[in-house]
Write a protein that binds this DNA or RNA. Structure first.
Ligand SMILES: [Zn+2]
Ligand SMILES: [Zn+2]
Ligand SMILES: [Zn+2]
Ligand SMILES: [Zn+2]
Lengths: 126, 126
DNA sequence: CAGCAAATTGCAAAGACTTGCAAATGCAAA
DNA sequence: TTTGCATTTGCAAGTCTTTGCAATTTGCTG
């Protein structure tokens, strides 16, 4: 993968933000510095970063995929009603992945699991 | 939810097929019987069936979401290289879900988990 | 510091859904 | 069966993302 200024800026944007951003949000945050960048370029760079494992892509229920820097494995529980996001340490998921990998001779690459459901507050409140 | 002939046919299509179909595939299989149906109607019916839990929606890596009748909980491992799909019984996943639910007071609704990775054949072969 | 092949980009067109709205339909009460 | 309302549908327009392709840029070689 070639290092172009656009891809470096996208990576640094994601590194500093440490949050889940959609392609459109990344595109918007990029415009001030790189006014001439095309949306398709942003989509393609993100696709490449995902493919090389530097960035995770996930559907967090927001209607569009979000991207996050992949330097610390973690996972989430997302409430379908209030959209609260709980973060799970990798330790909570890793044992299952290990056992699946051994049982099925399969190497799992999913690095940012998102599970949906209803949180405690929504269950009791409503 | 009203019972319209289109929604009944989509449901029966998914029940008989027992496989993962994209919205476009469903639309195509529907046309012979319902030539006048609009694509947007198919998308909206599928959205409703997913919302009521009768159908699962998942990204299986094929570039577009696929739908499946949700009458038997199960999950999958999908090879990112050869696109082989392994099926996991719910029993392999349920214990993790239980423990997450208790630990985080969260009721998980995800009913068709898809994990990506590399299968044994691709790992040894290539 | 050229010269090159391969990777990357911008643009415009295509593709894949989504949405607003008026008309049609399903359902149940009268 | 008839009536009336809420749900559902078709259509067309809109949004978001992908793709083909020629032009540009990058990393390497000499
Ligand atoms: Zn995350
Ligand atoms: Zn909630
Ligand atoms: Zn399945
Ligand atoms: Zn494989």
């Amino acid at each position: 993968m070639k290092k172009t200024s656009t891809s470096l800026q996208i990576l640094s944007l994601l590194e500093n933000c440490h949050c889940h951003l959609s392609a459109a949000e990344i595109y918007e945050q990029l415009r001030p510095q790189l006014p001439a960048v095309a949306p398709s370029t942003v989509y393609r760079i993100l696709e490449r970063l995902v493919h090389t494992g530097q960035v995770s892509i996930s559907d967090m229920g927001g209607g569009t995929e979000v991207y996050e820097i992949a330097n610390q494995r973690h996972h989430h529980l997302v409430c379908e009603r209030c959209h609260t996001v709980l973060t799970l340490s990798d330790a909570e998921i890793q044992p299952l992945f290990e056992s699946l990998q051994q049982r099925h001779s399969f190497v799992i690459s999913t690095n940012h699991l998102v599970l949906f459901g209803i949180c405690e507050k929504c269950r009791s409140g409503s």
